[in-house]
Amino acid sequence: MKEIMGVHTYREISEQPQALKEAYEEALRRKEWAETYLGDAEVQQTLFLGSGSSYYQAITMAATYRSWLKRPATALPSSDLLLIREQVVLEQSRTVAIGVSRSGESTEVVKALDSVKELPDWRLAGVTCYAESSMAKLGDSLVSKLGAEKSTVMTKSLASMIVGMQTAIALVSDRSGEHLQELDQLVQAQEERVREGEQLAQAAVSARNFDRTVFLGMGAMFGIAEEGCLKLKEMSNTWTESFGTLEFRHGPKSIVDQHTCVIVLVSDRSREAELKVAREMQDYGAYVVVAASAAGEDTAFADAFVETGLVGGSDEARAVAALPFLQYYGYFTALKRGNNPDEPRNLTQVVLI
């Protein structure tokens, strides 16, 4: 019997709307959690800790925290806190350390949190898909139950954990109503984003035989660009790179040619500058995909356009809207290369050391 490749990955990408809705509603019910771990203005450093995809979503979470709460936050690889703590944090500061892990069992994040649990003025928390996990036992955790997955690669889990954390951040923001409204709009629109993302990704993958794909983004979108890069690499065994959008012009753009796909995740705040980079890459021969809140005359040049919506809303809230396209892009590239997205080479769902 012929193997059906990628059945779990495909299904889990398509299940994002339900997972996002559940994570959003669960976070709304956990307002006390938000007030305890995110709402204390006396906290001097808030850390979002993860490994791999969980680190990339931590980047988006930290960017959201800084933008919406106007207080410092840092995303760190879990191993940095575990192994080189004195280089990356201030131990004597009043701190909230939030572990980010789909399984809640990743060795690095569990050991990192365990290594600081006795420090004075440190509180531990987490966000995961498994309420009974080791990480959740170390620190009170937000849980995205419908984010749980069979696949090795993270798709709906990552999107739902970001939305859950963003909802918690919104609850303690001075502009709570505004941010909650845009997150609600995001959740309601995600079914359309999934449907459109599948169609656009299939078309982009079929357009050319790409030797390389580059993902570009800034701020909250940079974490999503990093994640898009990893999804393609994991599923298709393709060498990809991700950069800050304008940073790509400082040397790395030398790799761009007609066999390159450049995907630019545009922030409204920096739209003009980022689209200028996108046009420049197209001039070098690249196939350019632009993801932005809405199409306009300034995006007409793009070879493909991905709408992320929330026109007039925040870049942070719309970040997750680009994920279905990015995940399907990795999925269809894998199938084109004869790889099974459900069985990425050398990988397991939980990384233990």
Rank of each mutant, 00 (worst) to 15 (best):
G309I: 10
R193H: 14
V127W: 03
Q44Y: 01
Q349V: 06
Y56F: 15
A97P: 08
V277G: 00
R208D: 07
K150S: 11
I59P: 06
A207E: 06
R123P: 10
R94M: 03
A159G: 13
K117A: 12
S160Y: 05
A278D: 00
V127Q: 12
K276L: 12
L124F: 01
G197H: 06
K2D: 14
V311I: 14
T238G: 03
N346H: 13
R71M: 03
M5D: 04
A131G: 11
P120H: 02
A62S: 15
F222K: 12
S133Y: 01
T167Y: 04
R11G: 13
N209I: 03
G219E: 05
G285S: 01
T167K: 07
A168C: 07
E32P: 00
G126N: 10
V262P: 01
R193K: 09
Q349L: 09
L216Q: 02
G52T: 12
E3R: 05
R208I: 06
A319D: 12
A220H: 12
S53I: 08
D342E: 12
P252V: 00
M135A: 07
A292P: 04
S173M: 06
S176N: 04
V194Y: 11
V7N: 11
Y287T: 12
V153P: 04
I162T: 11
G309N: 11
V163A: 07
G99C: 08
R175D: 14
R337S: 02
L81V: 13
V43K: 06
G197W: 03
L142I: 03
V289L: 05
A159Q: 11
S51D: 05
E35R: 14
A148G: 10
E118I: 03
K336M: 02
R102Q: 15
V306C: 07
E178T: 14
L246Q: 09
A125L: 11
A75H: 10
Q190E: 12
T213N: 02
I59T: 10
V194N: 05
R66V: 14
V187Y: 03
G296K: 04
K233C: 06
A112L: 06
N340L: 00
G219C: 08
A112D: 01
V96D: 04
G52Q: 07
F222Y: 15
V89C: 10
Q188D: 13
A27R: 09
Q202T: 01
S157A: 15
N237L: 10
A225I: 04
A148N: 11
D257E: 00
V306L: 08
T348A: 15
Q166M: 15
G285H: 00
E280R: 00
S254M: 08
V143Q: 09
G99I: 04
A136N: 07
R29T: 05
G217H: 04
T128R: 03
G285N: 00
L49I: 04
